[in-house]
Amino acid sequence: MSEVLLSVENLEAWYGDAKVLHGLSFQLKQGEVLALIGSNGAGKSTLLKCICGLLQKKTGRVSFKNEVITSFVANDIVAKGIALVPEGRKLFPSLSVEENLILGGNVGRKGPWSLSAIYNLFPILKEKRNAPSTSLSGGQQQMVAIGRGLMSNPDLILLDELSLGLAPIVIKDIYDMLPKIIGNGLTAILVEQDVTRALASSQQFLCIQEGRISLGGAPKAFTKDQISAAYFGM
């Protein structure tokens, strides 16, 4: 049996006075890929923000590698080994491609990922290493964002809406790379609008609806109708 890497218990979170998560609990084992599905505004990105420490207004308990990290701030959590590839990529426009990647490795964790490993994975980035990050195409920017996340050599990577704003062919390319990205036993949480693609890429899934878990487990254990019922709240 593989070990539990991340454990979330009774997590509640607020944006200002609005409660957006209502008591979520789940566990993620070492090496698993978990897909988070749910309609817009269901709370998927909020959950990721809670895990990586960007959202402070929360109660409940988040443990990572048997350490309670609920109250940790984002800059400490990344040093513990959780990286977020944020929705909308959020590259630093003043930094070149290479500088964005180097900054990803700022916390100095040891592991398989280095600048040259990222360039092997995405050769186009090596060509454009000195270009301003925002001069790249959407797909290339997404590669930078993924590479930047990997550079911290995380134990858990949170991938938020990788396909947002990208052309279908580019999305396919990125997902084809996914096994390489999370190949070395890396644990991942994947937020994705495209349910079919999300379920195909994962061993576990959680469907979130209005801040609550409406269904969860192995994708194969449920029929398509059961999952879409959970998704749409029927």
């Binding site: 990586c52 420490g53 960007l54 701030v73 984002a74 800059n75 400490d76 990344v78 040093a79 990286a83 977020l84 944020p86 959020k90 630093f92 426009p93 003043s94 930094l95 500088e99 180097i102 900054l103 990803g104 700022n106 916390v107 930047r148 911290s152």
Partner: peptide
């Protein structure tokens, strides 16, 4: 320099800079 990178990144987007471990 690394410090300069940190300055520029924080100036661009301090929240995303936190994700890089930059306080």
């Amino acid at each position: 320099t690394a410090l300069g990178r940190a300055f520029r990144a924080t100036s661009d987007d301090s929240e995303t800079a936190l994700l890089m471990g930059l306080d």
